[in-house]
Structures are given as structure tokens and as C-alpha cells.
Design a protein around this nucleic acid. Sequence first.
DNA 1: CATGATTGCTATTGCATATAGCAAATTTAA
DNA 2: TTAAATTTGCTATATGCAATAGCAATCATG
Lengths: 143, 143
Amino acid sequence: MQAPDPFENFLGYHLRRLSVAVMSDLTAALAPLGLKPAEASILYLLKSQPGLTQSEIGKLLGIQRANMAPLIAGLMRRGLVERRSVDGRSQALKLTPAGEKLRAAAWAANAAHESRIFAPLTAPARENLITQLRTLWQPHANN
Amino acid sequence: MQAPDPFENFLGYHLRRLSVAVMSDLTAALAPLGLKPAEASILYLLKSQPGLTQSEIGKLLGIQRANMAPLIAGLMRRGLVERRSVDGRSQALKLTPAGEKLRAAAWAANAAHESRIFAPLTAPARENLITQLRTLWQPHANN
DNA sequence: CATGATTGCTATTGCATATAGCAAATTTAA
DNA sequence: TTAAATTTGCTATATGCAATAGCAATCATG
């Protein structure tokens, strides 16, 4: 507490600093593809779970309905995602061929970014870190 | 990659989700004191290193000069921080008695928040996690 | 002394998140 | 089966944080 660094023992501080640095690097890595991190994660999700509605995507990613609307609109405008009406309200989403192509490129850029940032950790340390982080955030996801 | 959760192996994703959850909880914990996380961290820093200028605080916290100005102005307006001119340009900052009182309350709220969030981890696991996070972000701090 | 750097600041922008509210459609329950 | 509650997609709007550009005053250096 009298130490020059009062944040020494605050996990939240280090978490925040790292998260900001990582997001900044990821944003730069995806920028050449014209994608923001949130958009890329939507493409990833639609690859593995085609047919999700935008509300479902929002719940999975922790993005609210109101904020999903312009995100999906942007992806549709660029021809990366297409809709199919399920009923009068909801619409199933899936990647277009262009969307799948861009998703693959984003995935590769994302993997390269991860290697760059987390190089200081051994593979087992990374696995362990992922497990710890997931254990900590999942109880707070309101899905 | 075909798994239902494409983020399984992306450290950045879990980092982000946890950081958002933690910041949300911390913001709520500090709100009754009328402090935002960034303001509280400035108070912490001025407790352990009184006399810092706002530019120095910015470098330590990763906040730019332009964004420090309104933050410090707000703390001064509330009588939590006071200035002493070092020279015609820079001014040394320190906590007022009211500022120190509020800092102590914020510190306690922050510690309680940390206990709540990181309860699932053992003490050694927390220490290890902090070390890993710091190792990862410090190379990216441009100070 | 002159040039360059530093400090604090304003103005503005972008982005992610949050709430409130709405209309249409669907589900449920009386 | 009709009425009430819920769901979906959406608009509008507000906030917090970060980023850039630029400015005037001050200080440091050659």
C-alpha cells in the first residue's frame, strides 16, 4: 500500500492493462481485413453454428440486442452474412461465400496475433490460463 | 474450429470477457462513492507517490495527457486533490484530507470486489495469475 | 538567444456499452 | 379462442474510455 505500485496485488488492474493491449493489437491485426473484433467473432460463431439468430449471437457473445442490430446490418451490407426468415420475427443467419472467405482470413490473422502476444507463455501455461479465465468470467455471464 | 465454441483456444476472448465482467463489477462497487475506476486508480497512485504531475500519472496508468485533464479537473472540483506549482508548467498533485478519506474507502471497496470476483482461485493461483498477466502486458506499455 | 521539447488544455472523433422505448410477431394461459 | 405476456429486431440516445490534432505558455538546450 505504501509501495510505489499500489496495483501490485490487484488482479483487476493487470487484467485490464493486458486486455487493452490485446484488444489494441487484435484491432490492428483485423483492420486490413476491414473487420472489427466484434464483427470477426460473429463470423467465427456463424461458421461453427450456422443458423443462429442475432439475438442468440448476442447472448453467446455478451452483446445486447440493441447493439447487435447495427453490427449485423453492417455485415449484411457488405455481403458477408445472409438471412433466412424462420418466422415473422427471427431470422437465421449464415455466412455467404464471401463471408466465409473473410472469416478464414480473419481466423488466420487472429491466430497469428495470439501467437505474437502470448509467446512468453508455454503451451501448458496458456491452457491453464485459458481455463482460469473462463472459470472466472462464466459465472458472470448473464445468458 | 467446427466446435460449437470457436473461442475455446483464443486467450484474447476469455481475457476480454473477464475484463468486461470485472470492470462492470468494479464500476458498481465504486459508484456509491461517486468514483469511476480511472479516478480511483489516480487516488491510489497519489497515496503511494504524492507529488506526481498529471502527465506522470498518465504515463503510469496508460492514460493520455489529453484525457488526464478533465479527470484531474473533476477530482479538483470535488476537493479530493490539490496542486502545488513546481514550475510554470507542471504542478505536483497530492490528496487532500477528503481525498485520502475517499481513497481509503475506495481501496476497501476495491479489495472486497477483488475477493468476490477471484474467490474461485487459491491464493497461490492468484499470485501466479497476476505475475503472468503483468509479464504479458508490460512489454506493450509505451511509457 | 533561438530552437525544440514539455505541460496542460480544448475540441473533436470513434468505439463499445447501456437504457428506454416501439411495432410486429409469437407464445402462453385464462 | 381471445387476452396477456414475451420475443425479436430496431431506433434513439447517453456514457465511459481512448485517440488525434492543435494551441499557448513555459522550460531546456545548443
